[in-house]
Amino acid sequence: MQLNITKDMLNKKNLKKIGKKVFEKIVENIFLLFACISVICVALIIFYIFTKGSPAIFKIGLGHFLFGTKWAPTQGIYGILPMIVGSIYGTIGAVIVGTTIGLFTAIFMAEISPPWMVKIFRPAIQLLAGIPSVIYGFFGLLVIVPIIHKFYGGGGNSLLAVIIILSIMILPTLISISEISLRSVPKEYKEGSLALGATHIQTIFKVMIPAAKSGILTSIVLAAGRAMGETMAVILVAGNSPIMPTSLISRVRTLTANVAFEMSYASGLHREALFATGVVLFIFIMILNIVLNFIIKKAGASVK
């Protein structure tokens, strides 16, 4: 008898328990569904950019499109080599200037400055990171461009202006990641070097920077991605002429500017060519991402 009662009770309880378990499973699957949204978005973005962008490349011809040096939509000529070169020059220039300034600043913050000064630097750099890119462009347009015009003439809208603005914009990325990786260099390395009679500065350049190499590299690649993808600030200072840049004070147009600048009035093949420019930009960014992944993986492996 007693056995029967407990069995009945167990059944009722079991039903409730099963309901609870099913509910838990459902919620878990909802979370999984949310997690899949990112995947769907990436797939959609890649699909749309490539399907809308690639027809123009075939119509124009891959060689003409990528290596053509003339961009004249009114004559039906679509060569984006000037923009590719403009983007690459701008990015490389900004990375060189930015890394020099950024790395020295990171060294200062991690190794030299007294703690109270770090407390000023860190929020300042966070603020630099938070300023909208259009404000950088505006500042560049009204300050940097006139200065360049004053010294070199030519209006001031130039590759040099692009490099200056981009290098300021990528500073926060370079500084914060480099500082973190310098700070996470094991104390023993530093002590070991100092104990051998090396000076502090020697220790920084000969021991700590090599030890923080992967973090610094990561920051450089991330910064390069940011520089290459920046649009609004660049448009305002670049001059935007689709010509091959021949010097630092040449007017330039980047890939990003090409897309944004003519989109509002382009139609037909012209519009498709702009989408195709987006494809080329996307491929450049993906290459940088893959390099970044490679560095991070390699760094992870060397830690193990």
Partner: peptide, 14 residues
Amino acid sequence: VTLAGIPSIIYGLF
């Protein structure tokens, strides 16, 4: 990671 690396102009285009 890919979403984080896509520049805003590409988002705009998409």
